[in-house]
Amino acid sequence: MEVLKVENVSKSFDEVHAVKDVSFTIETGKIYGLLGPNGAGKTTTIRMIMNIIMPDSGKVTLFGQSMCDELKPKIGYLPEERGVYPKMKVRHFLKFLGELHDMASAELDKKIDYWLKRFEIATMNYFKVEELSKGNQQKVQLIGSFLHDPQLIILDEPFSGLDPVNVNLVKEIILDFKKQDKALILSTHMMEAAEKICDHVYLINKGQKVLDGPIDEIQTQYGHNSMQLEYKGDGQVIKDLPIVTNFNDFGNFVEIQLKEGTTVNDLLKELINKIEIYRLQAKRSTLNEIFISLVKGGEQDA
């Protein structure tokens, strides 16, 4: 079921196009990765979804309604620039956030208890927020963003600042939400994490959407001709081959990409008499590589 529809939104600040003509849809039961380098326009896009800033043009539709302030409580939003009220007690802070999201008091208490327990910080109920460690403060902020049980959850860099144990905990919770048929948008730089849990990826660069598709499709589309090679001899020979489009020397091994339509066999035929091969492994590109190649490609275009 379609939850959110972003249609051709654009936003510019003082002649700088922060977001240009971006469109996408978000459906229930799926996790979406909103990826892109720093300054690509991810946060601006999310702020427009949240009605915190107004798009210059384009339209945001949430649950079939045009986005407005009254719909804000239906979204759970963890901003990238997130803060706390340092002097408030953890519980009071969460209650405040819950009330801002239209929650009734009785229901709120139950939810706070549940989430504090789930995040293993139940003992810190009446600590001042400033007395908590950075990681625990982040847990409080996370709780604040889904306390009101929203159908759409937008998390901007949810893993930054968490240790591996807690990264796993947050991942579990995100997957739980997926099982509950909620829609999630993760905006992150951590490609490995995105790769593992996202179903669908939107890649934004320089304010424009440059990639849009289910993660499997993207990996097959962009990653079938990539391989790692360990060898002895003159690496220049490999680099000079006309069928090699990309050559990346890592010291212990090289990573290469072949021209479309060529196979590993073609490569071996070319190399077999020239260098000594120790190991050859065909691999799928990681999201990271796709990301970098697309972003760099974009720069060459510009």
Binding site: R47, M50, N51, I52, D69, K72, P73, I75, Y77, P79, E81, R82, G83, V84, Y85, P86, L97, L100, H101, D102, Q141, G144, S145
Partner: peptide
């Protein structure tokens, strides 16, 4: 203070 502690955006996620 609230601007510097970056709490504002969290508040704006529920209000205007």
């Amino acid at each position: 203070q609230e601007k510097n502690s970056r709490i504002v955006e969290t508040i704006l996620s529920g209000t205007n």
